[in-house]
Design a protein around this nucleic acid. Structure first.
Lengths: 301, 301
DNA sequence: CACACTTACGATATTCGTAAGGATT
DNA sequence: AATCCTTACGAATATCGTAAGTGTG
């Protein structure tokens, strides 16, 4: 017996109406097709479910038993199918992603907000971790994808560059370099620089670009917004990548393009090579592509 | 979407094996037909459930969600179908019937025992009531059928005679009439008779056969076995129909055919005219037909 | 190149709707 | 006569299996 939702719907319609004609049109079937459907169900089960003499249709004893069963079963099946539809139409879902702190704290929140405005039912879980951890989380399926620097992306993962960061020197508007149009490393070295913690992608990029000893180390902070506060208070200068400029759009601060030996930092979307993204993830990823492209256009005109 | 048990079984087989070929043969299908079945399911739901590249088959995120659902759904559907099969194969069921006390206490118990030996899962509920109540219970669907006297069976009910009772005079073997081969009413009248309560079918039959005043009334009892005891103790004689002879097969008692004006009592099976009997009831009824016929053969050779 | 899934395609089976048949009130 | 379920039958659809195609390791 191959019981289907059609069978159950037809059965319950007939049990409710006790009339083949009306039940048939309720199921959008000809009366004859409907009759055949019911007979098919009955022969599949091996019992008459309805006793019918042209004038009266009523449930047999076994029909009553089946009605009880279908009364529980059909709503459950329909609830399950509706649940699937929720996923298909992205009313439900869960996206786990990893991102560098400099991304998670700058461009990502607004993109998440835009995404959630379109798909309010989807749960977004973000972990802000270093690039190597990003890759590890993707590989171990703990997240659906990650946004991180292109370095340390290893085999088995699929990488797609979403944005390419340049670097900027950030200083108060009354700083000696404040009027310059572009700067080189040599220009910056004399000034005490607010730097980020050791694991930070920005710090690692700077350390890789310039031998650490050459810097005049100022404060060491964890977050970009703290750095912004310090610089605004005249307590130092700093260097940040394009996407982090969000945090430095503060009155009294200047951002000047800075040429570094390792000139750019690529921001990549990394995914497992073989895996298929969930529909929710697909939707978010396409929003991210647009969002990053827009951000680059706005920040580096 | 018309989700069927085939779909769910195929899905779970594939989710378990992650291999189309093996899952297909598990479902007794060609690999190609199986593949089509899965595609059909996926297109019905509007999602890919498996990500497959010729070498690997695995669940997508939506597939995982569906697996969770099917994991609950499929066992429930199968439990329901197995439940129906229990009814069809008469491993489960419930038969409610009404019967005259003289039947319920004599021939019926052994027939019930035989029935339950074949169909141990079926619940039998017997009410021993008068013929008019029998008819009423059948009409109001409180019982599936009844076994009662043919009198007072009214319209809308289907009646089938299962047995025809004659009447017997019961006396101790040392009674003056004990050697007679057959008796008439006149023979019996002088002897004090153990009679049954007013509503009893036997009492009513006797009252209708012979004007009540003509009897020499002995004890009045409720049950046939009490009557048997009294007669065996020499405290009277009694008159009972054929089917009640069971109770009087006691050493020292004689049963002698008695000709009454209303000679026989027909025992009928009565059912609702339109209703369809449950499979369990059908099985019991056919056993009853045989059982009553056998009993008549044994008791009235 | 071997294995595993997909596609192509003709054959079979199912399901559909129209229309006629039969039973009940 | 009217209503309502069943049956008959040709058409449309779905499903099956064989066999060829395709891509991945």
């Amino acid at each position: 017996m191959n019981l289907s939702t059609r069978h159950m719907k037809a059965f319950s319609a007939l049990a409710a109406t006790r009339n083949f004609t009306r039940a048939a049109e309720f199921c959008n079937l000809t009366q004859s097709a409907f009759s055949a459907l019911i007979s098919n169900l009955e022969s599949g089960l091996g019992v008459r479910l309805f006793s019918r003499n042209t004038r009266n249709v009523e449930l047999t004893a076994e029909g009553e038993v089946f009605l009880e069963m279908v009364g529980h079963l059909l709503p459950e099946v329909e609830r399950a199918l509706a649940g699937m539809r929720d996923y298909v139409e992205r009313r439900k879902g869960r996206i786990a992603l990893a991102a560098l702190p400099s991304i998670a704290s700058s461009i990502l929140p607004s993109l998440m907000a835009r995404f959630l405005a379109s798909y309010p039912g989807i749960e977004l879980v973000v972990q802000d971790v270093s690039s190597t951890v990003c890759a590890e989380l993707v590989r171990s399926r703990q997240v659906d994808f990650a946004l991180c620097a292109s370095t340390s992306v290893s085999a088995g993962l699929d990488s797609e560059t979403l944005a390419s960061d340049g670097f900027y020197f950030i200083c108060p508007q009354d700083h000696p370099l404040a009027r310059r149009k572009r700067l080189a490393v040599a220009d910056v070295l004399p000034h005490p620089i607010v730097v980020y913690e050791q694991n930070s992608s920005i710090r690692q990029h700077l350390d890789a670009s310039i031998y650490p000893r050459q810097w005049v180390r100022g404060f060491e902070v964890n977050s970009l917004s703290t750095a912004a506060g310090l610089v605004a208070a005249g307590l130092g200068v700093t260097v940040v990548p394009t996407l982090a400029l969000f945090h430095f759009r503060i009155r009294g601060l200047r951002a000047i393009p800075l040429a570094l030996p390792i000139d750019r930092r690529d921001i990549c979307l990394i995914r497992r090579k073989d895996s298929t993204d969930s529909l929710a993830a697909q939707a978010f990823i396409s929003l991210l592509r647009e969002g990053f492209a827009d951000a680059m256009r706005d920040l580096e005109p």
